[in-house]
Design a protein around this nucleic acid. Structure first.
Lengths: 338, 338
DNA sequence: AGCCAAATCTTTAAGTGTAATCATGATTTA
DNA sequence: TAAATCATGATTACACTTAAAGATTTGGCT
């Protein structure tokens, strides 16, 4: 670590001269500026971020708390966050709550002492179940800005980035109905997550409102994502006439395709399948999975924009919620190709 | 942000008294200690990490550079790194190089000014192709410790964590041979990556050394992972008698299962398939994919241990390479169940 | 009681790296 | 010679720790 002092010593001038010279201050002669810059380059001087942060009272670092890094949606979001943060001159400290309230809580407490300028987070499953959000309220009380994405809470007054979860399934079901599907089943592995509730509601509402069907909702709740295959097999015994499957998480759609293939359903002739995934994973199935795509990368980028805007711009402007458009991407498991 | 000074002012004592009181220094009277602690708790005082880092000349932060966060192996590793780092009192700053040399280089330069105490990284594909490792050599020259994992380089003298890539495929192929397989094909989507070379070599060597087969190696190189399905179909036309498929990346194994199912191969009766994946993804196929499992989580944890050991312990001890055991997990796509 | 030494408690000062304000000294100009 | 200009230096603040110095109280002894 080479410091201003080191440069000053080797040049025989004072620390402040060096500091000013490096900033092209008009107070310093061109000659000195040149000498200073030369030696700085030679010794590969880099200003110490720590000292700068202390002085400027900002770390140029964002805290990011993700519930589950193996979930492709969150991985995508993290990628978007990292990219955009870098672009705007910020680093990110990443914590993985692993769906645990305690870990989430600890991580926030650990970082909320000036280590980061603000937080981007999606709350853990456990936190949403307990509905204990005091750690977030404390942050706001300390004027640490937060941007929540995907899994948010109405009781926290902060900027948010979401997709329209209700409309995502509402539209997907309507698409099924347009295809002429009569028995559309929803598979939920997300329990009582806020987004799951909205997606389930979108499904139910679409069925209710449609005049082309009077199907009752059929919702299969699966605790452990690894059991999806078994549940689908059972479902096909009870409802052999299933002709639409809607999976509201990131992996089950793929399982559904392979399970229904195995049961000799012709996809998409006999049955349409839609999952919630991103392009990078949909091609793992045959036919390639059609999905509601959440565009996590963009969600992450928008979250960073909102946070940085609050950090640098008008801090007191009212909080807002940005809705990033989802898309319904027709690939091989639906009839309607776009 | 409440500081020692704030506490000192409200109590009418000096800053250092407060500092010592909070540390239970014997120099401070029990009475004062109690008063200080009470007010500190009341005002929710938290020592400023920045100031501490500056003073202690260590940030308690590790830089982590990952080539691709959507790759489940790297996601797993990141998870292991984060867990273990937290356990040892470190935070991590994550950068995603996205397989780009420039991004990797920039990230390292940005963090190597005292922002982090050391690095854990796996080099990007582009870096490995260019074989330009000056950014890493610079780090070592500046005495910033590095731990490389998975994708390493012999020309960098630092601690490393790897699996025995050669033995992974060597053993997998031998397992195929024990099953009586006669035509074992390797699918490589990893190009010239160091690990790919070793895995290909293990495959070739196993075929050569076996007395039970005199099969020539058949290696299918696929540039874009999304094309794997097509290549497998072609392969089955050329070699309809294929009875073993070895995929050396994290996703292709799943594609292979669904492709061969579709072509009416009976898995695992007609053909065995082994991929490189982790448990969280293998269940997406039917039958459930058997895999060489890399245990990314443990690799990450070991990397942190090695780095922290170097940071806190004997800095001058010779570098070492830890080999984390892989396992071959027999699930549904191989005959031999263990 | 009076005094000093010892023990106890608290403060001062220095140091971590940087940048901005203010101050100083030197040179040149009027 | 005074004033203006110019180049550089000293100081301070950011938040924290710690060694050393200073202040206060306690206790023992005459």
């Amino acid at each position: 670590m080479i410091t201003l002092k080191d440069l000053a010593n080797t040049l025989g001038v004072s620390v402040s001269t060096v500091s000013k010279a490096l900033k092209d201050s008009p107070e310093i002669s061109q000659d000195t500026i040149k000498r200073v810059k030369e030696i700085a380059k030679e010794l590969n001087y880099r200003p110490n971020t720590l000292a700068l942060s202390l002085k400027n009272r900002q770390t140029k670092t964002l805290g990011v708390i993700i519930p589950d890094i193996l979930n492709p949606f969150f991985a995508n979001t993290l990628y978007g966050i990292e990219q955009q943060a870098n672009k705007l001159g910020y680093n990110i400290i990443t914590c993985i709550s692993n769906e645990s309230f305690t870990k989430e809580n600890d991580s926030i407490n650990l970082l909320s002492n000036g280590s980061v300028d603000g937080f981007i987070l999606s709350i853990s499953q456990e936190t949403q179940a307990k509905d204990d959000l005091n750690h977030l309220k404390d942050l706001l009380r300390q004027d640490v800005p937060i941007v929540m994405f995907d899994r948010t809470s109405q009781s926290i007054e902060c900027d948010k980035v979401v997709i329209d979860d209700f409309m995502s399934t509402f539209n997907a079901v309507n698409m099924f109905i347009e295809e002429g599907r009569k028995k559309i089943i929803l598979i939920n592995t997300l329990g009582d997550l806020s987004v799951a509730k909205l997606r389930v509601l979108g499904y139910k509402t679409a069925l209710e409102k449609s005049s082309n069907t009077n199907q009752e909702p059929i919702i299969i709740n699966v605790d452990n994502a690894k059991d999806v295959r078994g549940y689908i097999k059972n479902m096909c015994e009870v409802h052999p006439d299933v002709d639409g499957v809607l999976c509201i998480d990131n992996k089950s759609g793929l399982v559904a395709v392979s399970a229904l293939n195995r049961l000799n359903y012709n996809i998409p002739k006999d049955v349409s399948i839609v999952g919630f995934s991103s392009e990078e994973f949909s091609y793992l199935s045959d036919p390639v999975l059609s999905t509601v795509t959440q565009h996590g990368e963009e969600i992450g980028a928008v979250a960073v924009d909102m946070l940085v805007d609050r950090l640098t711009g008008n801090k007191k402007k009212p909080v807002s919620t940005t809705t990033v458009d989802f898309t319904i991407d027709h690939r091989g498991t639906t009839l309607k190709k776009s």
